[in-house]
């Protein structure tokens, strides 16, 4: 069948193409400029002419940034990776168990509890952090990676998403497995989880990206350099380094490159995830 909303006029198609092309240049340019800047010399950065690509790529900008004493991006990178991975594993675990309980176990007050949890999603997380800072300090977790991991290791929103998916898995499977004497626990991990693989990948990806990009909370609970993650490390580096934009761009590229790689590999999951769940902007 013909595509219904196709633009038919050939001139209009050319105009549309040119518009999309210009738009994509605007969208991609900051990335290009960041990467190109990260390979420039200080002289090229401050030159009055527009230099699209450096004459010689300055790879040492990266080694400088990764091993700097005042802002060790190597350490930041390690911390970000640990926090994002551990946090994602925890979140997936709590989400799977929670979604299963709300989807398959018929306990008293289930719907009331579920609605109560959904209501908490309306409150902006910025409001929690004041109290959470006090809580984390009282738990003696200030300036630890745990402080960045724990508060975000469960998410009502992800439970809501996964429950929707679990609900689509036919009930007959559950009843049949019960007849066979299969326990709930075994059913969850042997049948439900493998079936929900694509949803879990999407949730895992979103959680990883959110954790990697987290800024305000890690900033509040981090005291010294060794516990900083990339986002805050980059911010401190930018305030310290004046106009060394070539080094700043190298730091920014170190933060963004893993995200671009993840996006290019998992684009399908990420786009579907946003479109289906309408994941927070």
């Amino acid at each position: 069948m013909e595509q219904e909303n196709k633009i038919t006029n050939p001139y209009a198609r050319v105009v549309a193409f040119i518009f999309l092309l210009l738009g994509s240049v605007v969208m991609l340019f900051p990335f290009f400029w960041m990467i190109s800047g990260s390979f420039k010399t200080l002289r090229e950065i401050t030159s009055p002419a527009i230099i699209w690509w450096p004459e010689e790529m300055q790879w040492q900008n990266y080694t400088t940034v990764l091993t700097m004493e005042s802002n060790p991006f190597g350490t930041y990178f390690r911390n970000s990776t640990i926090v994002a991975i551990v946090n994602t594993v925890f979140t997936l675990f709590t989400t799977i168990l929670g979604a299963f309980a709300f989807s398959r176990l018929e306990f008293k007050g289930r719907d009331k509890l579920f609605n109560l949890l959904l209501a908490t999603m309306m409150v902006p997380s910025q409001m929690y952090i004041i109290t959470n800072f006090i809580t984390i300090t009282r738990m003696n977790l200030y300036n630890s990676l745990w402080a960045q991991i724990l508060p975000y290791s469960a998410s009502v929103f992800y439970i809501y998403l996964l429950r929707q998916f679990f609900n689509q898995i036919p009930d007959q499977l559950y009843l049949a497995s019960k007849v066979d004497g299969c326990s709930d626990w075994k059913f969850l991990w042997k049948i439900m989880v493998p079936n929900a693989k694509s949803s879990l990948v999407t949730i895992g990806l979103f959680n990883f990206i959110a954790s990697w990009n987290a800024y305000l909370w890690p900033l509040m609970v981090t005291g010294d350099i060794n516990k900083r993650t990339l986002s805050i490390g980059l911010k401190y580096f930018a305030s310290d380094s004046g106009s060394d934009y070539h080094l700043m761009m190298a730091g920014a590229t170190i933060v963004v490159l893993p995200l671009i790689v993840i996006y290019l590999i998992f684009q399908k999951y990420i786009i579907q995830g946003i479109a289906r769940g309408g994941l927070k902007g």
Binding site: F31, G37, A252, T253, V255, Y263
Partner: peptide, 20 residues
């Protein structure tokens, strides 16, 4: 191209804008 900015870090890209 148009979806890419969704996954990127506001601090890092903000820095790129600061440079631009």
């Amino acid at each position: 191209a148009y979806f890419l900015p969704y996954v990127t870090n506001a601090i890092a890209i903000g820095l790129a804008f600061r440079f631009i």
